[in-house]
């Protein structure tokens, strides 16, 4: 085990032997991953916007005007815990009356109804559309309709169709595109790191001559390859963050109102891990006969 650690450390310390070559490899990896990251950033934001604007279905739930408000509030607090909830707005009869008045821009005065609003308690419940959206909608519709005191539940089937269509588009186009992009980046990174190992050919030959086994030759190469991959991907993420900060508000104006967000932490970590793994494998394979 001590030998293994020593070889792994040797791989890292060997990076100092050819600093310029190592720097250039890290730059090449960083640029490839940065381009891939920019595409991921674009896809992530496009997907998020599609989800926000078209990827939801909204239920409007009307209780009877005579429903017990305390009981309705209890139901609201339970509904607020539902999984997949994207938005939840509730209106007591008084709040509904105030919202009505606001929407009419003060053209009518309902102050005489204050304290005895004839409007029922209502709730607007928005769900993200997921797989089996029709079954989910049917089930949710039945569940809401079955709540005590609920008089009517409505939703727009066209909204559901649009959401399902956008979801299909992201599934069939955007994510395969993302996978393709990652595959290209992996190839570029893999071959870049593998080419960098050509600089170690003399060392590989000498180690073979003195009777080193394959794993003994490959371990230091793999650790230096992985280190270069990790350094390159971290640089790429830093560049990507800088680009995101710079571009964050570029589309934040009416009527678009899109704020560019950074890719999720899990995706960023996945990118780093994938690049490091590809570099490790590429450098391990580079030492083959």
């Amino acid at each position: 085990m001590e030998t293994v650690f020593r070889l792994l450390l040797r791989g890292l310390s060997d990076l100092r032997l050819k600093p310029l070559a190592g720097f250039l490899i890290v730059c090449a990896v960083a640029m490839a991953v940065f381009l891939c990251g920019l595409f991921s950033l674009f896809l992530h934001n496009l997907d998020a916007e599609l989800g926000k604007r078209h990827g939801t279905v909204q239920f409007q739930v009307y209780w009877t005007a005579s429903a017990d408000l305390a009981r309705v509030r209890e139901q609201w607090s339970r509904l607020a815990q539902l999984p997949g909830l994207e938005g939840f707005s509730t209106f007591t009869p008084e709040q509904a009356l105030a919202a009505l008045q606001d929407s009419l821009d003060g053209a009518m005065d309902f102050s005489w109804l204050k304290g005895s609003s004839p409007l029922p308690p209502t709730a607007l419940i928005t769900f993200a559309v997921r797989d089996h959206s029709e079954a989910f909608t049917r089930e949710m519709y039945g569940r809401l309709k079955g709540l005590a005191g609920v008089e009517r539940v409505t939703f727009n089937p066209l909204e559901l169709d649009a959401a399902s269509s956008w979801r299909r588009i992201t599934r069939t186009l955007l994510w395969p595109l993302a996978g393709f992009c990652i595959a290209i980046a992996a190839l570029v990174v893999g071959y870049t790191v593998r080419l960098s190992m050509l600089g170690h050919q003399a060392e590989i030959d000498v180690l073979r001559l003195v009777g080193a086994r394959d794993w003994y030759i490959r371990l230091p190469l793999a650790s230096s390859g992985a280190a270069m991959g990790l350094a390159g991907s971290l640089c790429a993420l830093a560049l990507l963050k800088a680009a995101q900060v710079y571009l964050a508000d570029i589309l934040y104006y009416p009527p678009v109102w899109i704020r560019i967000e950074f890719i999720p932490a899990r995706q960023a970590a996945g990118l780093c891990l994938a690049v490091t793994l590809v570099s490790l494998i590429a450098s391990w394979l580079a030492a083959r006969d």
Binding site: A202, E203, V206, L207, V210, G211, A212
Partner: peptide, 29 residues
Amino acid sequence: PLLRREACLIFQDYRILPERTVFENVALP
């Protein structure tokens, strides 16, 4: 590798690692 641990070849063109020290080269096997 086992054969090469018993039979060492000294090449005419040395086959040493130029960027490593004498100590490191001799220590390699």
